[in-house]
Design a protein around this nucleic acid. Structure first.
Lengths: 244, 244
DNA sequence: ACCTGAACACCGTTCAAGT
DNA sequence: ACCTGAACACCGTTCAAGT
């Protein structure tokens, strides 16, 4: 409801007045700023995002952003909130509830994974920003999402105690599996100059690590997808004992 | 070996010359800078660490640091490297190998957890900085550590394929369980001004979330330790099938 | 050999002023 | 009502200069 208000405010208000600014610019808007920030980070990485550059991208000086956003930190919180709200819509609000609880968890897990894969440079924010409440567990950090998640579990017959345990185990699982996958997918490695790094305490000479060298091919195999599916099934099996 | 060289260089060199600088300052040193940076982050948080302030803490202008460290990013990499090397010493190099592989994994898991608990503000760096090789899996991101880990597993009878699978599952487990625990312990929430945050798309009114409200006590219970131990045992059980 | 001063190109943020 | 210019207090980093 409150997001609908805000979204409509974007088009409402001075419905007829054309902007006096040079190009056909609608006035600034909180949601437009957040969406633009998401696009910016997706394209250029978090490190490149500055208030000044984001303003430029919106055709405005940086100072104008402060009318709509309290500061850079809160802007990043807002970016995370928007993506979590999209996730809520896509996986919970607008979906018919699955037939059974394993399908429910499967569906949600794949939804979160898709978020991580679609926004690999933002997912680390979702995973590591301090959440609004201390008992929220990233990446499942939206109050609305958690409310809906717990409600779903109880409908499938989980007790309150069990559903909280499921929430924790599920969030921990997703964090472990997806944070790594997303940071590999984000070329965050390439964001630093390549051979700029220096060995401080540890040799970087592979000859010093014979086993690692011998297993290089095995270690380099991309196994994220299979690991995720296997571990998800194991998790679900394990959680079954919590259900009455 | 190479770290011993560096460590001795700190005391060696001009063994008699007293510094001409005002206070009794030994000349700067890469390891001293890194250790001081670790202390700084532990006390004040990553956000407070600037080259200028770190220099000040070392009794020196910021520019002097660049003789020993290529830049701020590499300084942070160095911080992570030093802690991982301490971990390697404490958990692998100077330890008699445990009797069996479950004890081996238990011992290592608790070592990594202790690192996370002792340096809650640095562990997120260990968990999220781009590793030196793309197949390294934070938080188990030291080449030396991984070499030793794989060697250990093979001595307990794991095949190469199985030991790589164990490495991956183990790292994923630790990342999921410890990143969250450390960020709760780090008061990172308090690093931001308290009521400064603003709701963008989502209501922050708890009345909108009846289930969450009803389960507030359950959700707030600190269960990290028990969860970690339980999940670790389950992981070990699950990994047993990989062994010949 | 080791450190500093001055400078450069940036930041985030505030606030009076413009339209 | 909405945006900008100018300013403030910072950054990381380079490099010639000091001792």
């Amino acid at each position: 409801m409150s997001e609908t208000e805000r979204a409509s405010a974007e088009l409402g208000g001075s419905s007829r007045a054309m902007p006096r600014v040079s190009r056909g610019r609608q006035p600034l808007d909180q949601m437009r700023i957040l969406r633009e920030a998401i696009g910016f980070i997706d394209e250029s990485g978090l490190h490149q995002l500055t208030m000044r550059r984001l303003g430029h991208r919106l055709g405005v000086e940086a100072m104008a952003l402060y009318r709509y956003v309290p500061g850079r930190e809160q802007l990043l919180d807002g970016v995370v909130e928007v993506l979590m709200d999209d996730l809520y819509r896509d996986t919970l609000r607008d979906q018919p509830p699955p037939q059974n609880w394993p399908d429910f968890l499967q569906h949600l897990a794949h939804g979160v994974r898709e978020l991580a894969v679609r926004h690999p440079r933002i997912f680390p924010l979702v995973a590591t920003r301090p959440p609004a409440a201390p008992w929220l567990r990233p990446p499942l950090r939206s109050l609305r999402w958690v409310e809906s998640f717990l409600e779903g579990l109880q409908n499938y017959g989980f007790t309150p105690v069990a559903s909280v345990a499921v929430y924790r185990a599920f969030a921990t699982f997703l964090l472990g599996h997806l944070l790594l996958e997303s940071s590999v997918g984000s070329d965050e490695l390439a964001e630093l100059a390549p051979s700029d790094d220096i060995a401080f305490v540890e040799s970087n000479d592979l000859a010093d690590y014979p086993l690692v060298t011998a297993l290089a091919d095995l270690l380099s195999e991309d196994a994220f997808s299979a690991e995720f599916e296997d571990a998800l099934e194991e998790l679900i099996n394990r959680l079954a004992v919590l259900r009455e």
